[in-house]
Amino acid sequence: MIKGKQHTAQLIILFFLVLMIILAWYAGLSTSRLINDSLIRVFMNGVLVLSLLPMLNAGAGINYGLPVGIQAGLLGMCTAVNFGCQGLLGFTAALLLSAFFAVLFGYVYALILNHLKGREEIAGIFIGFSTVYLMCFFWATAPYSNPAMLWPIGGQGLRLTIGLQDYFFKVLNHLWVINIGHFILPLGMGLFFVCLCFLTYLFFKTKLGTAINAVGENPAFCKLSGINIDRTRTMAIILSTVLAALGICVYAQSFGFIELYEAPLMMAFPAASAILIGGSKGASTSILQVILGTFLFQSVYVYTGPVANTLLMPEVSEIVRVIMVNGIILYALIYAGRREQA
C-alpha cells in the first residue's frame, strides 16, 4: 500500500490516459494516429526532458533555466541556416554548432548558479526569463544575411519564426521510417533519443558521473574525498545545457520552424512536468524515469487536445494543457514537502 502511495502521481496520470483513450475511441477519433502522434512527441521532447537529468543529479534541482540551453540551440540552428546547411549533414552541423554555443552558455550559467547553491530552481527561472529578453536584442540585430531568415521589409533582424522547409525539416522524422499497417515508427528519431539516453546512462557510470551524483547527495562528503565541488557542478550544468541545445534542435526539425524571441520563455515547464510525472525525487533520477515521464506526459498532452475539442468546445484543449502542466509541478512540490516533513 505504501508502494502505491509513492506512485500516486503516475497512477493518476495513467488512469487519466486510459480514460482519454476510451473517450477518443468514443468520440470516433483515429486511435492509431493518436498513438503515432504521441510517439513522435515523445522523441521530439524527450531530449529536452533528458537535459534536466544531469543538473538534478548534481543537486542543482530542476533546471528551470532551460531557456539558456534552448537559446544556445537556437543560435546554433540559426547559424547553420545562415550558411545554408541542408539535409542530414546540415542538421549535424546545426547540432555541433549548438553544442559549441551551449558549452559557452552553460559555463556562464554555472558561474552564476555556483554562487546560488540551494536556490538554483528559483534563480534558474529568472536567469531563463532574463536571458530570453537579452537574446531578443540579439535576434533583432544579429548580423545574419540569409534573406529567408530576415524580415522581408527592411532586411534587418530575424523573423519571429524561421521555416526549415528548405534546410533540415523533419530529417530525423523521415530517417529510417518503418510502416506497420497504420502505425508508423520513426526509427531514426527514436534511435537518436535512445542513443542520447544510453550515452547519458553510461556517463553516470563513469568517474565524473559518479562524482556528480555524489555531489548532489552530499557535498560535505565529497569535499572529504578531495572533489572540487564547483568544478563538478559546472560540468553537470554544462552537460544539461548542451543536452537542452540538442533537444531544441530535434524539436525544431520535427516542428518545422525555429521559433525565436519570446518562444523559449515557458519551455522549461512542460519538461519539468514530464520529469516529475516520471517520479523524479531530486538527486537520484534515473533515465527510466525520464522516458516514462516523457511518455506519460506527452501521451496525455496528445490525447486531451482532440478529445476536449471534440467533446467540449473548440480551443479548450490549450486551457486543459496549461492546467495540467502547472498542476503536476504543484503536486510534485506538495509531495516533496510532505516527504521532508516525514
Binding site: N213, A214, E217, N218, A220, F221, L224, S225, A283, S284
Partner: peptide
C-alpha cells in the same frame, strides 16, 4: 559527512 546515505554499500566503499 561520512556517507552517501542514498547510495549503495559498494558505491560508498569505492568512492
Amino acid at each position: 559527512t561520512g556517507l552517501l546515505l542514498d547510495h549503495s554499500i559498494m558505491e560508498n566503499i569505492i568512492f
